[in-house]
């Protein structure tokens, strides 16, 4: 299963990813993504692959990768 890898050192809490992937991510009270799947790097199901790719592109800090 491919995972959404969040580089926490880059993330600045813009929140684009959580808008695109509400199934996998929520935002904490400071605006930083929380994995909703219980995994450190949430697995991206096939049905969300396109949204995942979009989230990777939308992150202004390039903190996301799918791998």
């Amino acid at each position: 299963m491919r995972r959404l890898l969040i580089d926490r050192t880059r993330c600045d809490g813009h929140g684009s990813c959580a808008e695109l992937l509400p199934e996998l991510l929520d935002l904490d009270e400071w605006g930083f993504p929380i994995s909703l799947t219980g995994e450190r790097d949430p697995a991206v199901p096939r049905s969300l692959a396109a949204h995942g790719e979009r989230a990777v592109r939308a992150c202004p800090l390039m903190a996301l990768r799918i791998g």
Partner: peptide, 18 residues
Amino acid sequence: VSRSGRAALGVGRFGVAE
């Protein structure tokens, strides 16, 4: 606007970036 991390124009943050 995108760099501010704000949603705008009713398209959300990712929408602004796109």
